[in-house]
Structure formats: C-alpha cells, structure tokens
C-alpha cells in the first residue's frame, strides 16, 4: 500500500495533468449542449463590461458608416410603410381581424458588443438581456437578414449563436420555387453558407433569393438570408449542392433586432402534442 502511495506521489504532476485535461475536455464537449452555463460566457456582467470598454473606441471610428446604414434602413422602412398604407386602402375588405396574428412578432433592438467570424463556431454578444424580455431560442436579424439565435441570457446581456456556427440550422426556402431546405454554415468563408436538402428535381438557378421559411417559430417568414452563388448536382446524390452568398456581412455587425414571437409557445405546444416538433429545423 505504501508503495502505491509512493508511486502516486511520484507521478502526481502527471495525475493532475490528466485530471485537468479530462475536466476541460468535458467542458469543450458539453459547452454546445448546455444553455445553463451562462455565467461562463461573455453574457457575464464583468466580462461584458470589459468587452464594452474595449469596443468603445472601435465603435467611435465606425460611426459614419453606422449612420449611413441606419439612414438607409429608415428610408427603406418608410418606403415599405407607404406601400403598405396604399395596399390597405385598396384591399380594405381583405383585412385580417385577428390582432394577435397581426402583432405576433415584436422587435427589440440591441447593439452588438462582441462578435467573431474567424472560428468554426462563432458567437455574438449583445447588450440586451432578460430584463428586456429576451429568452433563449429567440431569433435575431438585422436590416440585411438573419444573424443568429439567442443561446443564453443574463440580466443585461445575451449571447447568440451566430449563423456562422457549425451546429446552427435555419429552415429556409428558395423564394422563386418555394422549395424548403436548410441553411448551414460550412465553416471556412464567412460570406458563404450551404443550402441543403433541395431535391434533384428542383433546379435552382444562380441568383435565386433564399429566405426563411417561417416553419420553426424562431424566424418569421421571408426574412432574407442570401442569394445562390453556385449549384452543383452530382450523379450519385439525392440533393443539390448549393452555395449561398450571405446577405449579411458578419464582419461588420452593429445593430440587430431580436424577434419575440408571442405565439411561439402556442405553436410549439400544438406541434409537440402531434409529435412534429423539431422535424424542420
């Protein structure tokens, strides 16, 4: 017995090393699954404060472009508003009466305070949290299109899984044909994503717009994602290989909108009752 302890003592550094490695490997493997570990990412208060400080100077230099983008978006929204007002006058007899459906989505603006694009699994931190009503699994967009999905929230901050994350799948469709597919980022170029599960008999053409399908309650329908850049159909494959150029420049995110879907619980629970939840994510 004494010799065993002697042996253990002799290799104590090795033992500590192996233990720490097992512990950290377990952390790496479990980090994608656990939403609860919010104290250990940048939604933590102190960490977010430091990150805010480090981004403050950078933001100042980016103000001009930011202003321009906001002005652009304002103009676009104004245009859409007028066209909507016009159409309401013309089609007043087709009005939807259910106000809960009309005001189903609520938008919360937030500022990006931390963002990466260079890793295989990228995360974004924003400066709004549970005190603004944010919760995990809400969708996030900006004026160009889909940005990501909320992963975890603290009181004043939230961490998103970026669309540039290997495990993020967004239910989407080709606008022209209406075919449903799934967007997943391939992992190398922050401009390009893959569109999967478009069957052989559909022939998408270069330049087709890809938008969200609205099938999962995270994103509303018709939020832009990107345009098709290349299509390839291999002999032995059931699905097309489609490369999509993303609308968003993820290296330049500044302001985003979090989508709160008031009817999400209702939709999810009726789907859950019928066992079809999560089949089209």
């Amino acid at each position: 017995m004494g010799r065993l302890f002697l042996l253990l003592f002799k290799y104590r550094a090795m033992l500590v090393f192996v233990l720490l490695e097992i512990l950290s490997s377990w952390m790496i493997l479990s980090s994608d699954l656990s939403v609860s570990a919010s104290a250990f990412n940048s939604s933590n208060q102190i960490v977010a404060k430091i990150i805010l400080f480090s981004n403050a100077t950078q933001n100042y230099f980016g103000l001009t472009t930011l202003n321009q983008e906001l002005a652009h978006e304002n103009a676009k929204l104004r245009q859409e508003l007028t066209s909507l007002q016009q159409s309401v006058i013309n089609t007043s007899n087709l009005k939807v009466d259910d106000t809960e459906i009309i005001s189903q989505y609520e938008y919360q603006d937030a500022k990006v305070i931390n963002n990466t694009t260079q890793w295989l699994n990228n995360y974004i931190t924003i400066d709004k949290g549970s005190s603004n009503g944010l919760a995990p699994d809400m969708g996030v967009i900006n004026q160009h299109g889909v940005v990501g999905k909320i992963h975890s929230v603290s009181k004043h901050y939230a961490v998103l899984v970026s669309l540039l994350h290997n495990n993020v799948l967004v239910s989407s469709k080709i606008k022209r044909t209406g075919t449903i597919g799934t967007i997943n980022w391939g992992g190398s170029d922050p401009q390009i994503a893959d569109l999967k599960y478009i069957p052989r008999h559909i022939s998408p053409s270069i330049g087709d717009t890809i938008v969200t399908s609205g099938y999962n309650a995270v994103f509303p329908e018709d939020i832009p994602i990107g345009i098709i850049e290349a299509v390839e159909l291999k002999e032995d494959k059931n699905f097309n290989d489609i490369k999509v150029k993303l609308e968003n420049d993820f290296t330049k995110l500044s302001f985003v909108y979090v989508i709160k879907n008031k009817l999400k619980i209702e939709k999810d629970s009726i789907e859950f009752e019928n066992f079809i939840l999560d089949t089209n994510e």
Binding site: S24, V47, N114, N121, T125, V159
Partner: peptide, 11 residues
Amino acid sequence: VFYNSFGIHAS
C-alpha cells in the same frame, strides 16, 4: 469566458 470557447483555452 471572453472567447465564449468554454474549455478550449483551459485544456
């Protein structure tokens, strides 16, 4: 914590 890469830098 800062890189949102739970465990990678530790290991």
